[in-house]
């Protein structure tokens, strides 16, 4: 199992962390060069950008990043366990990047940034002063990062056996992602109270993640290299 973890560390997590840092740094740097409003929206899109990155890259976890180790004598159950740990580790790393991108500009005195209210799901009303809501936002963002990977890995598997269905799902995903960006931008300007819906959101997304993880388990334990 450690071999599988080490493999995923340099084949998946490493590049992913690199990209996430790049996105985060770009968000922080560009925001300083441009107007504050743009900064708000740009920064609010960061988690979504990361989710897209994770979704697309994690498709490899059920394609060549699964078949390659398998062809080199790795056990399927070790690979599955390693994939789960990798999901978690990657989600945490991306979360750290997201959080740092929020905190570092403040520490450097560049100004306080507004974390996406949408992901905040905070029931406290907006005061008019942009501020980030770490406690409420981050678990949700972390969950989204997990879900993106689990769903992406599932999509990768679907694409290998049912190309047409996979393409349809991929297209749907892109539409959803664009829609989500728009929704975030709109909602962050409004004073929405999600209140009692928050636990339901958590429940739904956690359940989706679980479903994807279980599907993945079934596919991985029966995986073959032709």
């Amino acid at each position: 199992m450690t071999r599988c973890l080490r493999y995923y560390a340099w084949a998946y997590l490493g590049p992913m962390a690199g990209y996430a840092l790049l996105f985060g740094a770009a968000a922080a740097v560009f925001s300083q060069l441009l107007a504050v409003e743009f900064f708000d929206s740009y920064y609010q899109a960061l988690p979504i950008a990361i989710m897209v990155l994770l979704f697309v890259m994690s498709t490899t976890l059920s394609t060549y990043n699964l078949e390659l180790p398998l062809s080199m004598g790795a056990r399927r159950r070790d690979l599955y366990a390693a994939v789960l740990v990798t999901f978690l580790a990657t989600a945490l790393v991306c979360l750290a990047v997201t959080v740092l991108t929020a905190l570092v500009p403040e520490w450097l005195g560049w100004g306080v940034v507004a974390f996406p209210e949408f992901t905040g799901m905070d029931s406290a009303p907006r005061t008019g002063v942009p501020m980030y809501r770490p406690a409420a936002s981050w678990p949700m963002a972390g969950l989204f990062y997990l879900l993106s990977q689990a769903a992406g890995a599932c999509l990768g598997r679907v694409m290998t056996s049912h190309k047409v269905l996979g393409v349809i799902l991929m297209v749907l995903f892109w539409i959803l992602a664009s829609g989500l960006v728009a929704v975030v931008l709109i909602v962050s300007g409004m004073d929405l109270q999600f209140g009692p819906l928050v636990p339901i959101f958590y429940g739904v997304f956690a359940a989706l993640t679980l479903v994807c993880a279980l599907l993945l388990r079934r596919w991985v334990l029966q995986a073959t290299v032709r």
Partner: peptide, 17 residues
Amino acid sequence: LFTGQNTLKVRHYLRSA
């Protein structure tokens, strides 16, 4: 060879081995 690996490098292959 493997699904979706069209850009896999030799180095990656050998390092995995």
